[in-house]
Simulated scan of single mutants.
Amino acid sequence: MKFDTAYCLSLDEKLSIYDVRELNFDETADFDSDTDSFLCPNDACRAAFKASNTLSTFNAKNVNYQRTPHFKNKTGTQHIDGCRYASTHKGTDGENEDDREDNFPSEFVLTRRTYPRKASTVNTEGQPPQDPTKTPPTRIGTSVSGSDATPDKTSVFAHPVECYVSNIDDKDKLKSMPLKIGEHTATYWTFFKKIEYLQDNKGLIYWGKIKEIKDYTNSFRIDFEKKVWLDKKPYSVNVYLSKKLIDNYRKRKAFLEQIKAAVASERALYCFFYGVTPELKQVPSKKNPEQTFGVFSANIENLDHLIVREVPGAEEL
C-alpha cells in the first residue's frame, strides 16, 4: 500500500511525501530522509507501537522521478486492527501499484511552508518534549491538520502537478477535483492551461512541451514547442531563468542537476510554471539588431513554482 502522509519523528510533525522531498533538496535545512524515521500517520496506531515501527519512502530523494512518490509499509511494519494504512503490501523492491496520485490537495498555498524542529530534551517549562505518539499541535502555516487524513493544502508545486500529470488521461476526474490558488478557485482541469492557450486567462498553471532549453552557463531559457496565435500570426513562447534567481535558490544544486539533465535529455520533456504569464515582447534580431520580432516571454520569479518533467500520455491529448 502506498500513501501520501506520514509522521516525521525528528520534526514531530506529519508531512506529505512532497514535503519530505522539499526538505531533502533544501540546502538550508538539516534534513535527510534516509536517516530520519517515518511512522504511521494514524495517531492511535502510532501510539500502539514503538518508534522503531517505521515506514519507508519511495522517490523521496530522486531529483527526476517518473513514478509517483509515496510512503509505504516495510516488511515488518505493524498496524492496529482497523488502521486504514494496514495492507498486505510488504514493501518489495518492485512497485506494481497504480502510479496515479489520488491525494488531491484542494488548495495550493503560495507561501512556503516552514518545518520547525521539535524541542530537544526539555522545553521552556522544564517538561519533556511531546510524545511522538501524540497528535502535534496545529502550527500556523502548516499544511497538515491533526488528523491522519491526507492534507488538503500544500505549498509544494510538485504535488498538484503530479496529481494532474498522473491522472491526465482521466478528464472527468480532473474536472471534478477543485483547486484553489490565492483567491481563484476552479477545477484541476481548468487551472492547468496548455501554453498555446495562455491568452485565455491569466493566473493559471501554464504547461507545454519543451522545444529546447538554452544553456547560457549561468542562466537558462526554456523554449516551448507550441506557438501562440495572435491576429492570425504565430508567436514563439519562452520563459527565462536568470542567474540571480538560480544563485539565490535554496535548492540550487538539485535544480541545476535537473535542468542540466533536461538540456542533455533526448526524452520529451514538459515545463509547468505558475506566477507569471508570458506577454508579447519585441526582441532585437540577432542578424539585424535594428529589426525586432515578436515573442511571448516571461522572466520566472520563483523557482519553487516551476517544474521540468516527463508527462506520459501527453502526446495523445
Rank of each mutant, 00 (worst) to 15 (best):
Ala60Asn: 13
Ala60Glu: 10
Ala60Thr: 06
Lys61Asn: 13
Asn62Glu: 15
Asn62Cys: 07
Asn62Val: 08
Asn62Lys: 14
Asn62Ile: 09
Val63Gly: 10
Val63Tyr: 08
Asn64His: 07
Asn64Arg: 03
Asn64Trp: 06
Tyr65Met: 04
Tyr65Val: 01
Tyr65Asn: 02
Gln66Trp: 04
Gln66Met: 06
Gln66Arg: 11
Arg67Trp: 03
Arg67Gly: 08
Thr68Met: 10
Thr68Tyr: 05
Thr68Asp: 03
Thr68Gly: 01
Pro69Leu: 05
Pro69Asp: 02
Pro69Arg: 00
Pro69Glu: 04
His70Phe: 07
His70Lys: 05
His70Glu: 02
Lys72Gly: 03
Lys72Pro: 00
Lys72Tyr: 14
Lys72Ser: 05
Lys72Glu: 04
Lys72Trp: 05
Asn73Ala: 09
Asn73Cys: 06
Asn73Met: 09
Asn73Ile: 00
Asn73Leu: 00
Asn73Val: 02
Asn73Phe: 00
Lys74Arg: 14
Lys74Trp: 06
Lys74Ser: 12
Thr75Met: 13
Thr75Ile: 05
Thr75Gly: 10
Gly76Ala: 15
Thr77Ile: 12
Thr77Arg: 00
Thr77Glu: 13
Gln78Tyr: 02
Gln78Val: 04
Gln78Pro: 03
Gln78Asn: 11
Gln78Gly: 05
Gln78Cys: 08
Gln78Ile: 02
His79Glu: 01
His79Tyr: 01
His79Pro: 00
Ile80Asn: 07
Asp81Glu: 09
Asp81Met: 07
Asp81Val: 07
Gly82Trp: 12
Gly82Ala: 13
Gly82Ile: 10
Gly82Thr: 11
Gly82Tyr: 12
Gly82Val: 08
Cys83Leu: 04
Cys83Trp: 10
Cys83Val: 10
Cys83His: 01
Arg84Asn: 00
Arg84Val: 12
Arg84Asp: 07
Arg84Tyr: 00
Tyr85Gly: 02
Tyr85Phe: 15
Tyr85Ala: 01
Ala86His: 12
Ala86Leu: 10
Ala86Val: 00
Ser87Tyr: 07
Ser87Trp: 07
Ser87Phe: 05
Ser87Arg: 10
Ser87Lys: 03
Ser87Gly: 14
Thr88Ser: 12
Thr88Glu: 11
Thr88Gly: 08
His89Gln: 14
His89Cys: 15
His89Arg: 09
Lys90Phe: 00
Lys90Pro: 00
Gly91Asn: 05
Gly91Trp: 01
Gly91Lys: 06
Gly91Pro: 08
Thr92Ala: 06
Thr92Arg: 11
Thr92Gly: 13
Thr92Asp: 11
Asp93Arg: 13
Glu95Asp: 14
Glu95Gly: 02
Glu95Arg: 08
Asn96Ile: 14
Asn96Ala: 08
Asn96Val: 13
Asn96Lys: 13
Asn96Asp: 13
